[in-house]
Design a protein around this nucleic acid. Sequence first.
DNA 1: TTTACTGCAAATCTTTTGCATCAAC
DNA 2: GTTGATGCAAAAGATTTGCAGTAAA
Lengths: 140, 140
Amino acid sequence: MNQSGHIADLLGKQGYRLTPQRLMVVSAIENSDDHISAEEIYSQVVARYPNVNISTVYRTLELLKRLSLVTETDLEGGRVRYHPADKGHHHHLVCQECGAIIDLDESLLEPLQDALLREHNFIADLRHLAIHGRCVRCGR
Amino acid sequence: MNQSGHIADLLGKQGYRLTPQRLMVVSAIENSDDHISAEEIYSQVVARYPNVNISTVYRTLELLKRLSLVTETDLEGGRVRYHPADKGHHHHLVCQECGAIIDLDESLLEPLQDALLREHNFIADLRHLAIHGRCVRCGR
DNA sequence: TTTACTGCAAATCTTTTGCATCAAC
DNA sequence: GTTGATGCAAAAGATTTGCAGTAAA
């Protein structure tokens, strides 16, 4: 299980250079409570290091994805969000009304996963599923 | 239950002008076996009516969405797909390896829908869920 | 010193918008 | 004849890329 700062270690061990830009991108992702977008990461990094470029953020995210250190999810449409790959709970209920994002317990999806395997021989990758609908407050 | 051509009727009855461009966009959606993208609709329309503009396609889709005559789904990322709103509920298994799209029976998702309502008071809109993973042929 | 990484600017791709013209009603 | 719909061109938003300079190792 990765602790804070682990992603940077892994990068270093694999021979990737630990530039301040990369470290700040990684730390933004690790310190985010929830999924974070490229733009949000960029804002955080720029605050301390004003001349970083957003393309560096994207290139770092690309690298982290390739190494399976972060996962990307498309919770909205048109803006992808990132999240450390080993930080559990990757299911979300997204309210179409108010935009609220509710974390979903993994166990609720196990029966579905089993059924898909049984009836369709389909190995479902349910690590980052987003289910849209209406939350309690927004009712129907 | 809408028959072929019904969307155009509905548009007309609501006072929207039945331009050839609109009719062709609507017909492309109605005749598509599966979900169709804006770009694909555009190609079909341009083939017969070479000077239509893709912005017209988007404007028509926008209108049809607003009137709940078509539904949009985000099966991939970065490109949305369209589908007549009343053409049954589609769930898809999307193979990450070969891209195959397998239609999924609605009943498999009912338990999940119930569980979400029960445990989170969340009214899930599972009309167009896409589940990614690996199909039989691509194994794991 | 080497070459991976970065910043910058420009390109891409999808979708949206302003505006003058045009055609469905 | 009106007014809503279209075409065009340009903008917008997210992401990618080419290239020459820079700094991590």
